[in-house]
């Protein structure tokens, strides 16, 4: 078996965002709107997994797009995908926030449903599971969390994820493997509930 170099689904393809970025550099509102609709949810979701906080996730997403507006005219197509660069900006913004953050943990479960409504029990169980998983992810070191977020939750190719994290594919794989081990260890106490589903 040849040593794998990592998949890159977009290798050889044109960066779908290049034209948009050039139009944004020219001040086109429609291009900005298109870029936001393409990537805002991804940025919010990534930041949420990194920070475990919905409000901070939105702040990070705003920071990313501010950076896009400021840097669009400097963008040089061909070096890396624009989306990869956006992920890198988001991850670095999350790292900054994690460094500044005073860790506050809460065991509160989101109150998503009235207990008397049909299916409420199921919704509560799902909310509990979701919270447990988020807690487990938040207990991982930030770099492992970033690797898992990009590859498993964002389903990014390993090469793109490695670029976004500015590491080699081998280093990414090491982070992924350790992250998965850490997640399993943390969730061990809840494994029965998870597997019952």
């Amino acid at each position: 078996m040849r040593k794998h170099t990592g998949q890159d689904n977009h290798r050889g393809d044109k960066d779908p965002d290049t034209a948009l970025v050039l139009r944004i550099a020219n001040g086109e509102q429609a291009a900005a709107s298109e870029l936001v609709s393409r990537h805002l949810s991804k940025m919010v979701s990534l930041a949420r997994h990194m920070l475990g906080d919905a409000v901070e996730a939105e702040d990070v997403a705003q920071e990313v797009f501010m950076k896009v507006w400021q840097s669009a005219h400097k963008w040089q197509p061909g070096k890396a995908k624009f989306e990869t660069w956006m992920h890198r900006v988001a991850i670095n913004a999350c790292y900054d926030r994690l460094r500044r953050r005073r860790e506050v943990y809460t065991d509160q479960i989101p109150d998503r449903a009235d207990k008397d409504t049909p299916g409420a029990d199921q919704m509560i169980i799902e909310a509990e599971l979701s919270q447990q998983v988020e807690d487990a992810i938040m207990h991982l070191p930030a770099r492992q969390r970033a690797a898992l977020s990009l590859c498993h939750l964002r389903e990014m190719s390993n090469k793109e994820a490695a670029r976004a994290l500015e590491i080699s594919v081998e280093a990414l794989e090491s982070l992924l493997a350790r992250g998965r081990r850490g997640l399993r260890k943390h969730l061990a106490g809840h494994a029965a509930a998870m597997l019952e589903r």
């Binding site: 919010v44 949420r48 599971l129 998983v133 898992l148 969730l187």
Partner: peptide
Amino acid sequence: ALAQAPRQ
């Protein structure tokens, strides 16, 4: 477990 992670 990862599939249960909250999506925002």
